[in-house]
Design a protein around this nucleic acid. Sequence first.
DNA 1: AATGAATGAGGTTTCATTCAT
DNA 2: TATGAATGAAACCTCATTCAT
Lengths: 219, 219, 219, 219
Amino acid sequence: MPDNESSPRWHRRADERPRELLDAALAVFVERGFAAARLEEVAKRAGVSKGTVYLYFTGKEDLLKALVRSAIVPELENVEALAKDHDGSRRELLIKIVSAMWRAIAMSPLSGIPKLMLSEAGNFPELARFFLEEVIQRHWALMRRVMEEGMASGEFRRLPSDLAVRIFIAPMMMAVFWKHSFMPLEETPMDFDRYFAVALEMSLAGLCAKTETPTGKQP
Amino acid sequence: MPDNESSPRWHRRADERPRELLDAALAVFVERGFAAARLEEVAKRAGVSKGTVYLYFTGKEDLLKALVRSAIVPELENVEALAKDHDGSRRELLIKIVSAMWRAIAMSPLSGIPKLMLSEAGNFPELARFFLEEVIQRHWALMRRVMEEGMASGEFRRLPSDLAVRIFIAPMMMAVFWKHSFMPLEETPMDFDRYFAVALEMSLAGLCAKTETPTGKQP
Amino acid sequence: MPDNESSPRWHRRADERPRELLDAALAVFVERGFAAARLEEVAKRAGVSKGTVYLYFTGKEDLLKALVRSAIVPELENVEALAKDHDGSRRELLIKIVSAMWRAIAMSPLSGIPKLMLSEAGNFPELARFFLEEVIQRHWALMRRVMEEGMASGEFRRLPSDLAVRIFIAPMMMAVFWKHSFMPLEETPMDFDRYFAVALEMSLAGLCAKTETPTGKQP
Amino acid sequence: MPDNESSPRWHRRADERPRELLDAALAVFVERGFAAARLEEVAKRAGVSKGTVYLYFTGKEDLLKALVRSAIVPELENVEALAKDHDGSRRELLIKIVSAMWRAIAMSPLSGIPKLMLSEAGNFPELARFFLEEVIQRHWALMRRVMEEGMASGEFRRLPSDLAVRIFIAPMMMAVFWKHSFMPLEETPMDFDRYFAVALEMSLAGLCAKTETPTGKQP
DNA sequence: AATGAATGAGGTTTCATTCAT
DNA sequence: TATGAATGAAACCTCATTCAT
């Protein structure tokens, strides 16, 4: 029982707590998965005790929902705004969109959220549906518009745009998943900058290639 | 084999059990994730009782390890053999390899395993390392060899082969993850055959494109 | 780790368990109240571990419900049958009914249940309603019928039968509550047999008294 | 008392608080039982915050003790004084005492306290002993004196006075318990005034009945 | 070989109590 | 004097694992 009042046992930080807790929760959920994540670890990383979590969220599931709902939609809206303001070729716009998503999501801690949703979609169908409709399909719709405009103008090849979108961004998504799974085990971790540059180049090449490249027999 | 045995309490032969249990475990682990999967559900799907699982595996984790270790390596070996026997262009070989993997893994129940490993890599580093080295990197090595040969022969563009491999197969991997996460929630589920055809075509186009397709400014 | 197999760690008693658990739960709930009762103590008194409770009941509340629903209704039905078979004066029937209830409920461990319901009615309205309708009011209805018949025949005074029933059995109910609250603290605990004899005599006297006994001014 | 004080953060005088808190505590404890009562609800009903409770009481248990110790003894003393001043028949005195208790306790919020003590006697033996000795037995002693005097003078029948007291007031106690348990669930709640009138009349009849009313066989 | 009743460690959640403001 | 954010012990409940049958 120290006589000097050097360090109080805790501080009141009502305003910062939710953000701190969500950040901690993101890290733990992504590392361990929702079920294996222990609330105590979330609390510890946020610098509070177990009970404090319940002052701000009704429980573990609510924490997950708040995390997913709050995190990515704003970034997506930024990108949508950016697309609306664009004045130039569809090709440049596509690059702009993908680069913005890459910077804002793939290269930030937010990259954990797609990994998390992928893992937990089966256990939280309602949340997964929200993510599907409000994030994934909204993102696809944006890109699809751009692609179809580019196809109409002749900038891109004529391809089924619904599939082309998924295929186009697949390499970027894979990087996001890789980052939160096997990358920590790689001897020489992947260089994200180079990866992005090559991926974008190849995806664009696939989208724009002049000569038809026959696939041969299907499986 | 007594034929006057009226109704035996147990039916199946012991040597079918492990396979049945692994199949059931795969389904449940993929749907729920390892931590949230209940062993009782695995047992039920395999048509046995909870206790029986422990006659064949030492526990839940052992079940996961057996699952991962046993499932994909044989398929990969098939593909390696197929590659060794190939006689033709590198392009055709690449198509042959990817198509074989698609059929054997992506379109089979085995597709759950990559999803599972992605989700659980953080909790089972040892198992993840096994999967990284014995499956992922081995698969990459095979494809990389083919790609580099194709680049040397002029069939493919000169690209950093380590990255090109990852990017090339990303659309196929994405389909696998999609299948086990959001696809059940889609109104009109993705058509895998069309997806594969377009993905392969675009990936090949990206790999073979004659004209350099400048990327513009990097992010 | 004893080599000899003298005493196994536990026994399978699937059939007896529910009854044992309900008996233990009754004792603990009555002593402590529902909220303060710890499931672990219930389990210990039943000679099992905490987890075993959940093999037979879905939780603490289910245990309470099963307890209340299963315990008293059968006894009440016995008494109803006994009343139907009666052939004699209403006075004798009344005595018979009250004596039977006294023996079957007030003097058995079941006496804890009215005390428990009284305490917990506020927290479990649904259960309380069940008890009110299926036990209390049913019991009252039986007694009321007898009383009204006795009033019609002149055996009893004319009184408001709905109130007279409550008043008539109040002394018996009080004994039940006393038993599970202050009696353990009394230096010389109440003698239930004498109490019942005197109570029945006084209640009957109040019901049958020939001379009107004016009450004087109301408060 | 500065009159330029624009808007104080706290309003009430400290010496009103304990009473307000005890009133709130009584209501919550009676509704929920001690264990299930949340101190935050007590605070809210008293119009203060959780922390404030601890400025006046050392904790939840202290609140209960203060509640029980402070509430009923004064009322009992009133009744004792009233008995001392009485000049008239024992019958009238008995009616006076019971009516006074009915008005002061049964028909006031204080009626919650007997219900509370009944429910919590098992968890707070010390407090229960206090209540037993300082309230219950003191009240009984008073009534017993009156009854024995009445028996001596021939106003009442000769009965074991210790039991007769308990039996005599049982209907009044039952009303108190009923009020705080099942009455809120009754379709047409009991009419307390009529109940008291009939109960008093019947109890007096039982006490005064001229003709011995044979009970028949005991159980 | 198979069962499923029983166990108990481990996690979530609640809430009386403390204490910085 | 009053607040309410923060704490942490305690209780419920789950389920991997064990073991009597």
